[in-house]
Design a protein around this nucleic acid. Structure first.
Lengths: 242, 242
DNA sequence: ACGAATCTCGCACACTGTGCGAGGGGATTT
DNA sequence: AAATCCCCTCGCACAGTGTGCGAGATTCGT
């Protein structure tokens, strides 16, 4: 009867393009990505995109229903940049770890992605291929039934949750050069009622913020993988996977 | 010399209000929260907020530098709704679990929070108190030095990463009533090249989406806590905490 | 009562996404 | 060759956004 209820570019037939004239979807996506990388999510407007394509402001609306669909296309394009080993060869821990690090790197390289993570439906071919591969990996690891999904969701959630604040941090830092000493002082003023938080300030004193974030990411990643592995051993003895 | 480099409401003196006339910051935050809860993040505009306060469109700008500061205030107010036990009594696993569930519930009740998670600096009193408490909890668990921070970051990242897509899902579902059968069909059409993904469709067949999400959340949470616990035991034998 | 501080708010600016409908131009049919 | 059709472009307009500015109102300290 009615059309699909989730609205997504991927859930409707694209405009047939038997014609060779006119712009192609690839061309549009490429321009969109350039604009996003150069000026960020706020820097992308339909008028600017039109200008970049030497087209009118509303010409893109022939190829795309609305701006969200455009973002879906860009979103999936970036999913395609994430690289994975062959799960059957690398093993699930290695595969998971590569996935996590690769996804983190890709998002840090395209910071506008962070605002889209989890917010846009990930139904594009690249996202689906990724999900399929990760499922294969977790299945091969020994997870069964819905546990495959749960494990994958857990890992992805961790990466999302780590990277989003990291991007935010990176952006407020990149805005203007920041004196870490002065930053610590202002922060200390605000946190003066919380001695435990102040402790952290002195501990993190000398380490460059970048490496701290990297160590932090690895710490959490190892924890998550350890946790999944524990679950794996436990369910081998008494599987339930309802 | 210059002011603080991170721009946040909490890093500057509030306008002194020796005066009793005029609106108060609490009043403004309350109205903001009502608007956000009623109409979502997109539903909040300075003009609407002014109208709700029976004030002009730009009157709020006396109390707040810009819209982001307003959101920071609302953001921290919600952090205040998260409830925690006393870590020293409950133990760190119980404390962490309560934190995770409570934060999830609070965000699902205020879906506009999801778009703000990790994007806004969390320097408000409620967020700081929360962070301080969680640090106490992890310290008491046996973590030392920066590991306290890492453990806390890991847990928080997991919750963020789980809840953000959950809210997105909840919102596209809530928009209009969706026939799960038809949704599965459209999804099957799009994922037809990925047999592993299709498997999942049949497995998740009959379970209500809500309970699946709840099980999924618990699955991941237990995994994360197990992983942290493993780390804890390991570092007890050979602590490094650089 | 006077000056100063605090607070309100109308106007204006630049900008956003996008509905609409008139038109151009190439391919296909008559 | 002419007419028709479909793909595609795009100018205009609308309703909205955040917020700088500066004139005015209100209330305080003296």
């Amino acid at each position: 009867m009615s059309g699909p209820q989730i609205s997504s570019v991927w859930l409707r037939e694209p405009r047939q393009s038997a014609r060779t004239s006119g712009r192609s979807r690839e061309e549009i996506v490429r321009a969109t990505l350039e604009l996003l990388d150069a000026e960020g999510l706020d820097g992308l407007s339909m008028r600017k995109l039109g200008a970049k394509l030497s087209a009118g402001a509303t010409s893109v609306y022939w190829y795309v229903e609305n701006k969200d669909e455009l973002l879906e296309l860009a979103y999936d394009a970036i999913w395609g940049e994430i690289s994975l080993p062959v799960p059957e060869e690398a093993g699930w821990r290695e595969t998971s770890s590569t996935f996590a690090h690769s996804m983190r790197a890709v998002i840090l390289a395209h910071p506008w992605m962070a605002a889209l993570l989890g917010r846009l439906p990930a139904l594009g071919p690249n996202a689906l291929a990724m999900a399929d591969l990760m499922r294969r990996s977790f299945r091969q690891a020994g997870f069964q039934g819905l546990d495959i999904d749960y494990a994958n969701t857990t890992l992805t959630a961790y990466v999302f949750g780590m990277v989003i604040p990291e991007v935010a941090w990176q952006q407020t830092m990149g805005a203007e050069e920041i004196d870490p000493k002065e930053m610590r002082e202002t922060f200390a003023r605000v946190a003066k009622d919380f001695p435990d938080l102040l402790d952290r300030l002195t501990e993190v004193n000398d380490l460059p913020a970048r490496t701290v974030r990297e160590i932090s990411f690895d710490f959490g990643l190892v924890s998550v993988l350890d946790g999944l592995e524990a679950r794996l051993h436990r369910s081998r003895e008494s599987p339930f996977s309802l």
